[in-house]
Design a protein around this nucleic acid. Structure first.
Length: 479
RNA sequence: CGGGGUGUGGCUCAGUUUGGUAGAGCGCCACGUUCGGGACGUGGAAGUCGAAGGUUCAAAUCCUUUCACUCCGACCA
């Protein structure tokens, strides 16, 4: 805790985590508030992170055969109502359009909160034969959910996301797709965002409206609070039946196709902030950082400094590294603080002394160690350092998650953890929704995160009711 | 949707109790000196006090209404 705080304008995490989060969002220029409640302005620096996220994920989706499409943003009320569970889940948070121009609409239109119904309507028209399957669609769009409590990135009334919607001839293929896409998210979180996270299946109580099964990735934030980081759903043929989508199979019988959907959103930017950030501000995982290396010239008025800095910038850029050379007339110290706050993974300092030695100084945002390195082969050195930063972030998160994951074999232990130890609690469960509700009530907000894939047998009985245990659950508080 | 808080130059806030016609720091602009952890000097621009109504000779300040944001809960990606 003796860490020297170099950026003064951000509230410390340990003083007020919520305020720290808001400070980082605004001071790092990721987002700003707008005139519409719950809607945020994503500023260029924040949007650039989203663009990098999109690019990476989009490549992963397409490598698996998915195609991008675009559906309308309005859903007629009658369409939304075709699947009973689905409409019950979403109707309370829909925004409605009731007037077009000067005229009241005959049927009101919902601004999409998610697009299952639109895809189904379309699938009905384009799926006739087994030859039309599978359909592997995805769209990158905005959606609207009229939230009561909002926070930039974590929960906004309008947010950006991708929603994948697929149709398959068989149950097995659809189930495989559901798990495969969860794996894509898991890999992406770990390998791109440097956030290793728990994955598993949601309980009946927590699953998506209209889904047979929902799978989830649950990253833990720095303070031990969980964030639902992405979900994939297996729908069975429920929507297909509700929307009368059928195909003729090879055996000449008419069948219902099996469906999935899956999505991750701009909430991931919130996860990045809250997982990696520290008291000096943001720390961006190198793979999505808009600026991977910032070059700060020192004594740049001196002959040759700026020229050399520019050469270095060009060389790094040519090697595929995202570089910014800040030649503004702010002082070097100001720049150090500024880019630390903005989470740039690597800083490169170069001044007359360095140039004389054919070297420069590299500083990691994570360890803050200064490395004096040669300008020869600099691009490789920088790439290594970016990799190191990524790995350090992954390790740090792993350690934090381990330190904040607790085991409870009985109610006393569970209550103690819930009350005194922020983080996840692993405990056995009888499988009943009543116990989930009871736990939530007794602990003031601890909910089941998921039934992880690697279940352990911690105890023979449910931590809540004492009946025989069916599953291990990961529990926690959430954003 | 319930409970709390806050709205005053771009930002953070003082001024409100005890009405008298708006201040500070930071930021911004210009010039000069600086430049290896948020530099300094000089000069300058910028607010009608969230909005509406009321009381008063006079309202940032008192009263009423309203809106927005924010925090904590319940609800939810």
């Amino acid at each position: 805790m003796a860490e020297k705080k170099l950026v003064e304008s951000i509230t410390s995490m340990d003083v007020d985590f919520a305020q720290w989060y808001t400070d980082v969002v605004r001071k790092a220029e990721l987002a700003d508030y707008s005139g519409v409640k719950g809607c945020m302005i994503i500023r260029p620096y924040g949007y650039a992170i989203w663009e990098n996220i999109q690019k990476d994920l989009d490549e992963r989706f397409k490598a698996l055969g998915h195609e991008n499409v675009y559906m309308p943003m309005f859903i007629p009320e009658s369409l939304l109502q075709k699947e009973k569970d689905h409409v019950e889940g979403f109707a309370p948070e829909c925004a409605w359009v009731t007037v077009g121009g000067e005229n009241k609409l005959a049927e009101r239109l919902c601004v999409r909160p998610t697009s299952e119904t639109l895809f189904c309507e379309h699938f009905k028209n384009i799926i006739q034969s087994y030859r039309d399957l599978p359909k592997l669609y995805n769209q990158w769009v905005n959606v609207v959910r009229w939230e009561k409590t909002t926070r930039p990135f974590l929960r906004t009334s309008e947010f950006l996301w991708q929603e994948g919607h697929t149709m398959h001839a068989t149950e097995e293929e659809a189930r495989t797709e559901t798990l495969q896409m969860l794996k894509v998210y898991e890999d992406f979180y770990r390998d791109t965002l440097a956030i290793p996270a728990v994955t598993g299946r949601k309980t009946e109580k927590e699953k998506f409206a209209g889904a047979m099964e929902t799978y989830t990735i649950e990253p833990m934030m720095h303070n031990g609070v969980a964030l639902q980081g992405g979900t994939t759903h297996y729908f069975g043929d429920g929507f297909a039946k509700a929307f009368d989508i059928t195909f003729t199979d090879k055996d000449n019988t008419v069948k219902y196709p099996h469906q999935t959907s899956w999505g991750v959103s701009t909430r991931m930017i919130g996860a990045i902030i809250m997982t990696h950030g520290d008291n000096n501000g943001l720390i961006l995982p190198p793979k999505v950082a808009p600026i991977q290396v910032v070059i700060v010239p020192v004594q740049m008025h001196k002959e040759g400094v700026l020229e050399k800095a520019q050469q270095v910038a060009d060389a790094l850029r040519a090697a595929g590294i995202r570089v910014k050379l800040d030649s503004s007339d702010n002082s070097p110290g100001w720049k150090f603080a500024e880019y630390e706050m903005k989470g740039v993974p690597v800083r490169l300092e170069i001044g007359p002394r360095d140039i004389e030695n054919n070297s420069c100084v590299l500083v990691s945002r994570v360890s803050r160690s200064k490395n004096f390195v040669s300008l020869d082969g600099l691009a490789d050195t920088v790439k290594e350092m970016l990799t190191t930063v990524h790995n350090e972030l992954v390790d740090r998160v792993k350690k934090n998650v381990e330190a904040k994951t607790h085991i409870a074999t009985n109610w006393e232990e569970f209550a103690d953890h819930a009350e005194n130890h922020p983080g996840f609690i692993k405990a056995m469960w009888c499988g009943e929704t009543e116990c989930e509700e009871k736990v939530k009530e007794l602990t003031g907000g601890v909910k089941s995160r998921c039934i992880p894939f690697n279940e352990e047998n911690l105890a023979p009985t449910c931590v809540c009711c004492g009946k025989p245990a069916k599953h291990m659950l990961v529990w926690g508080r959430q954003y």
